[in-house]
């Protein structure tokens, strides 16, 4: 690695200067490739009212490979597992270097609005989501209240 790539500096500047509503991404004090992220639960989703912490890391190969992102706050979602790992195509095989930190975080916010139990990461959650959606949504709301508010 030779210093901090201009691409990362440029993205960081823009994130600070023009933040995305409902999303906060702050670079770590000692590691400019590591971001402390907060995403607000989208309105009209079971996550509404919650504030979810994530961590985002730009690997050496970024932007030729995707950022690594993980939920730090517990969340009940069929595409997010107990360790906070996210099942999202653009973080894997559908990554493009034209995508950015900002677009990745927007996609994650969108994933909260539209859970996809047919492509599950957390199997038990996905099953309940398919069998009894109302109950699953209730659980997601409860988890949001317990883990994602007031901290």
């Amino acid at each position: 690695m030779s210093g901090l790539p201009r691409r990362i500096t440029k993205e960081t500047q823009r994130l600070m200067a023009e933040p995305v509503p409902g999303i906060e991404a702050i670079p770590d004090e000692s590691n400019a490739r590591y971001f402390h992220v907060k995403v607000a639960g989208p309105a009209e989703s079971p996550y509404q009212g919650g504030s979810f912490k994530l961590e985002l890391f730009l690997p050496e190969e970024y932007p030729m490979s995707a950022p690594k992102v993980r939920f730090m706050t517990k969340i009940y979602h069929p595409n997010i597992d107990k360790l906070g790992r996210i099942c999202l195509d653009i973080l894997k095989d559908k990554w493009s270097p034209a995508l950015q930190i900002r677009t990745v975080l927007l996609s994650i916010q969108a994933l909260l609005s539209a859970p996809n139990p047919d492509d599950p990461l957390a199997n038990d959650v996905a099953e309940l989501w398919k069998e009894n959606e109302a109950k699953a949504i209730e659980t997601a709301k409860e988890w949001t209240r317990v883990y994602a508010t007031g901290k």
Binding site: Y34, E55, F57, P59, K68, V69, R70, M72, D81, L83, G84, R85, I86, C87, L91, K92, D119, P120, L121, N123
Partner: peptide, 25 residues
Amino acid sequence: FNSRLVCLAQGILHMGSSCLSKDRS
């Protein structure tokens, strides 16, 4: 393993394990 380093340390984990869960299904 809810630590920053363990998860970030393993470039393979985020993607690797989720492939793993899907492939199992």
